[in-house]
Design a protein around this nucleic acid. Sequence first.
DNA 1: TCCGTAGTTCAGAAATTCGGAACTGTTGAT
DNA 2: ATCAACAGTTCCGAATTTCTGAACTACGGA
Lengths: 114, 114
Amino acid sequence: MRPLFHPALEDIKPEAILYALSDPERAAIYAQLAGAACGNTCSALAELGDRVIPKSSLSNHFKVLRESGLIVSERQGVEMRNQTRCAELDERFPGLIKAILTAYGQIPEQLKTG
Amino acid sequence: MRPLFHPALEDIKPEAILYALSDPERAAIYAQLAGAACGNTCSALAELGDRVIPKSSLSNHFKVLRESGLIVSERQGVEMRNQTRCAELDERFPGLIKAILTAYGQIPEQLKTG
DNA sequence: TCCGTAGTTCAGAAATTCGGAACTGTTGAT
DNA sequence: ATCAACAGTTCCGAATTTCTGAACTACGGA
């Protein structure tokens, strides 16, 4: 497996963020991660709405989120822990993530103040 | 020519907004409109960066912006006046547009306070 | 009526997305 | 050591979307 790519904070592009979150399924995954205290695995999120997301699609969603700079993924044994880069991102693009999650009506408690 | 479709405020979807602005060219057009006091025409924006945007592409960009709810277009004689729906949108998705334009580093004066 | 201008629509090529099947890497059992 | 189970990735073909030149429509002026 290829090593996972994570962009440096300064290389994160707004268009990549917007693109990644313009897919409601990905946005829901991201919102879920933003709400989870600890990192979440891939398969834990396979069933967000009514449909079951195929695992290749899910894997791709995580890749898009990761490479846009929204999340960090780290292999932990057989599975993958995924966490948001909220704090970092808010520094680079103030208010952006919060406004997007609010627009989707998915703002988690942790982000409400700030 | 078919009548132009504009979604009602309550029908505007966050994913459509994000998608529309995830294209840097469209975002630049939108930022330009947001900065212009009066509406702007299509062809006035044909040359934003270094490349000249083909007019069919430009027409499509405006269509995407319009149908996502970001702008209103109105025929005025032979040309088209385009205006943003900033105020309305900010009511529906507080802070979203401002945060996006800020992220792109294109926040116009009019939006800086508020 | 005929021409020029602004923008839209059409259509085919190119690029992207989706998802099943095969594969990789890790853990635990025998 | 070998095997099986599991989490996730990669591959690749089908379906969808995007792009843009060319044709077309709509309006205004001469």
